[in-house]
Simulated assay, not measured.
Amino acid sequence: MTKITLTIGGSDTWGGGGIQTDLKTFENLQTFGLSVLTCIAVAENDDFVIRPLPASLIHEQLQTIEQSFQLDGVKIGLLASIEIVDLVIDFCQRNRGQFPIILDPVLAFKETEQQLQQDYLQKIRELAQLVDLITPNLKEMQRLVASADIVSLADMETTSQQLSEQTKTAVVLKGGPHILTDSAIDYYTDGINSHYFKGPISYQSTIHGAGCCFSAAICVHLAQGTPLIESIEKSKRFVYEAIENGLPIHDAGNVWHGKIERSLT
């Protein structure tokens, strides 16, 4: 039977992250993908800007999904406003335990929005208590636990265990190539069990959307009944392939799981 997976997150107009990458990942891994759009990322005067959608529209989208589908897995990404986080908290409370829920705690705030960021972080911590797995990168983890820079394996362990203890939720911290020089490394803990995931480092520049791809892939594998540790291992390999086969754009590029013969300039 076809599995149905939902992404709740932002639209990346450049196509490299957000719901665009989530839906591509769902499709590549053989689930039927649905989406609830929370915001749109655009360029304004050469700056990166997030445009949240009205909370009422997010409510209508969630209501439509719940009335129309039996879900097998949900991935949550950028929610963009405190009002939207509250709606997703309500959604998770209604559906907790019915399907796996993965939270990729995307943070996209300017330095001038410090108070907004702190209020948003507190709401994300509340949401994190209602999901099955949290997948922060190093910078997101620093903000979630008010940590100094994470520069070692010991730092990865300490901060992950701290977040897992605070939220009572399993955590996989994406260290990538930033901790070790010979491999890309991630660290998992559920407060009792822990596990390191090591893989090759890709030196391609097509890394935009890698974090979205990772959490969406975990969502799919869990929806398909794969155990959690194996789901993380498979997803790590999938992301590496998506970077290796990505789409170059200017000096960087997007993850993609299809091979290409040209770049966009």
Rank of each mutant, 00 (worst) to 15 (best):
D186T: 11
E111I: 14
C92V: 11
A210K: 09
E27T: 15
D251F: 05
P227I: 13
L144W: 10
P200K: 15
N28R: 13
I243Q: 07
T64I: 02
T169A: 10
D47V: 01
Q166F: 01
G15D: 00
L264S: 10
V106W: 01
S194V: 05
Q224E: 15
K174Y: 07
V88L: 12
C213L: 05
T25I: 06
T169P: 03
E27G: 14
K168Q: 11
S56M: 06
L107K: 03
G18A: 06
L173I: 04
A128T: 06
C39G: 01
D149T: 09
K236V: 05
F197P: 00
K75M: 08
E241P: 08
T206C: 04
K174T: 01
I76M: 03
I65C: 02
Q115K: 15
D251T: 14
I101D: 08
Q30D: 15
K75N: 00
R51D: 09
W256H: 12
P100G: 13
E261R: 13
S160H: 01
D119C: 11
Q61P: 13
G77P: 05
A210M: 14
A146L: 10
S263H: 10
E44D: 04
K123M: 06
S202G: 10
I185Q: 12
L127S: 01
G97I: 14
Q142F: 06
I185T: 15
I84S: 07
Q161R: 13
L180F: 08
E113L: 02
Q162N: 10
L130V: 04
I76S: 05
K123R: 10
G175H: 05
S263E: 09
I102S: 01
V106L: 03
G33H: 07
S183R: 15
K174R: 09
I150Q: 08
N254W: 00
I134F: 03
R51E: 08
M1S: 14
E66W: 03
Q142G: 03
E244S: 12
K75W: 02
Q93W: 05
V220Q: 02
I65D: 00
D186Q: 03
M156Y: 03
S263Q: 07
A184K: 08
I84N: 05
G17E: 00
A108T: 07
L264V: 14
L144N: 07
T25G: 03
N254Q: 09
I134A: 01
R237E: 15
N95T: 11
R96W: 05
F91K: 04
A41R: 03
I179G: 11
Y203G: 12
